[in-house]
Nucleic acid binder design. Sequence first.
DNA 1: CGATTGGTTAGCCATGAAGCTAACTATAGA
DNA 2: TCTATAGTTAGCTTCATGGCTAACCAATCG
Lengths: 129, 129
Amino acid sequence: MANQSSRLDQIFAALADPTRRAIVMRLCDGEASVGELADPFDMALPSFMKHIHVLETSGLLQSEKSGRVRTCRLSPDALLGAEDWFQRQRAIWEARLDRFEAYVMKLKKEKERAGAKRPSRTTKRKGSE
Amino acid sequence: MANQSSRLDQIFAALADPTRRAIVMRLCDGEASVGELADPFDMALPSFMKHIHVLETSGLLQSEKSGRVRTCRLSPDALLGAEDWFQRQRAIWEARLDRFEAYVMKLKKEKERAGAKRPSRTTKRKGSE
DNA sequence: CGATTGGTTAGCCATGAAGCTAACTATAGA
DNA sequence: TCTATAGTTAGCTTCATGGCTAACCAATCG
C-alpha cells in the first residue's frame, strides 16, 4: 500500500520526461511562475501542473505561493544526488577496468613466458575475464 | 503511433527502477549471464527478462547469445551520456549563480551609494533577478 | 535418445502515468 | 464590487509498466 519508492527512483522517473527535463533546464536559468513555465508548452494547465507536482515530490523543484502566483525554483540537492549516483557507478566501472587491465597485463606476461618455452602456440582464448 | 521517445528519456526511465539500477550496478563489476543476474531477485524469469530488455533498448546494456546462454555487459556510452546531461545542467546552474552573485554585488554597491545619499530607506525589493 | 537447463513467447491482469475538460477558488486590478 | 487572472480540484480516458503463469524452443548432459 505505502508507495515505497526511493528518492532516486523518483528523481530518475521525473527526469525521464522531456517536458520535465525542459522545466528543469529552464529553472537552471532562474526561478519562474507556473504560468511562465507553462507558456512554451502546448498543454492544458492541469496537465502541466502534474509535471510540476512530480518534480516537486521528487525534490528537484521547490515552490512557494505568494498571492495568486506560485513561484518555482530548482533545488539543486536532488540533482546533485542523482549526478552522484553516476559518479559512483563510474568509479566502480573504472576500478573494474583497472582490474581488467591488470589481468590483461598478467596474461601478457604469462604468454610471453610461455612463448619463451614453446614458441609456436596460437592461444585461441577469448579474453572475456 | 511511432514511439517517439528520445535516448535520454529511455535511459532515465530505465534507471528509475531499483531492479534495473541494481542490474547496472552488478554489471559495473563485470559481465554476467541472464541467469546469474536474475538469481538475487525474487521474480519470475519472464518478468526479469523485461527489465533486461528495457536496459538493452535504452542502450545501457548489450547482450549476446552463445549456445543457450545470453551474456550481458554494460555499454558505458549511454551511462556517460546521461551523466553528461547532469554536468551540462550544472554548468548552466553555476553560471547562473555567478550571474546572481554579480547582481547581488551590484545591488550592494547601489545600496551603499544610496545609503550615502538618503540614509534611512529600507529597500523592500525582493531580490528575485 | 531423453531429461535438464537457460531462455523465450504469448497472453493475462492491476496499477500508474499522462493527457483532457469542466467547474471551482482566490487574488488583483479597474 | 465586478471581472479577469492564476492556479486548483475532480473526474474521465488511454496507454505503458511491471508483475504473473503456462507453454514452448534449443542446447547440454547422462
